[in-house]
């Protein structure tokens, strides 16, 4: 059986600067989403428990081959990558089509893992779209997963309740960050991981058209402006007086 972890290449958000309210991506390195790394870690645990092969699947621009080394170093056995520079600004539906096609190409996939949302856009659509394309059951927001033969038992965490569910494989699962602590591979491990097997294909190879008209248009994407008073106070006494004068607190 193969276990697939789908991961997204995103700009390192800690290094995105804002200039004139616009995000600046120049010289910002690419990385993998944090919750995607929790999904990978969950995959590593399951792979050892059920003796499966762990494949990382991703779609992105040509730099993906380099970015994905971190996932290979953190425990994925092989990578299946869909690359094309047009995938730089990938939309959720295109991403889902490519990942679903890759999963079909890999074959014998029992578990498909995602983070609950990508680090940059956080729309959380891709896993559900992939499950629909492949006509598979899905269990979102998993905080614990165990596999027992042909079924998985999963605890999913919602806002107010936890549901313990049982589902037959194959299944699409998204994880929350609480599920585990993802390992951080060393630089040497990342360099060595470059030798692990990688299959790199184009959207064309998978028969997916990516030039189709985008369903979403972004009219603007600006940093919010703060309109704050910016009053500097010198002491707690002065602060408390100011707040009670405004009626915000009672003394």
């Amino acid at each position: 059986m193969n276990i697939v972890v789908a991961m997204k290449q995103i700009p390192d958000l800690q290094q995105v600067r804002i200039r004139n309210r616009q995000p600046v991506f120049e010289d910002v390195p690419l990385t993998l989403g944090n919750i995607d790394k929790n999904a990978l870690e969950a995959g590593v645990g399951l792979k050892e428990a059920v003796n499966a092969k762990l494949m990382v699947v991703s779609a992105g621009n040509e730099e993906l081959e380099d970015t994905i080394k971190e996932a290979l170093a953190a425990g994925a056995d092989e990578a299946f990558l869909v690359t094309d520079d047009a995938l730089d600004q990938i939309t959720s539906d295109t991403s889902a089509s490519l990942i679903a096609a890759a999963i079909q190409k890999i074959g014998d996939v029992g578990i498909i893992l995602f983070g609950e949302g990508s680090g940059d856009n956080y729309s959380g659509q891709v896993a559900s779209r992939v499950a629909e394309i492949l006509d598979l059951p899905e269990v979102g927001y998993a905080k614990a997963i165990e596999v027992d033969g042909k079924v998985a038992r999963i605890i999913r965490a919602l806002e107010d309740i936890e549901e313990y569910v049982e589902v037959e494989l194959p299944v699409v699962i998204t994880v929350v960050s609480e599920i585990n602590e993802a390992r951080i591979p060393s630089v040497t491990q990342i360099l060595k991981a470059g030798k692990k097997p990688k299959e790199v294909v184009t959207p064309d190879d998978l028969g997916i058209e990516i030039t189709a008209k985008a369903k979403i248009t972004t009219l603007s994407n600006l940093a919010p402006e703060f309109d704050r008073k910016q009053i500097v106070v010198k002491s707690i006494d002065e602060l408390v007086k100011a707040l009670s004068n405004e009626g915000l607190i009672e003394r």
Binding site: I18, I216, L219, N221, P224
Partner: peptide, 11 residues
């Protein structure tokens, strides 16, 4: 968007 760094207006 971008982890909250920006607010996108989308259609």
């Amino acid at each position: 968007a971008l982890g909250g760094a920006t607010v996108a207006n989308q259609v």
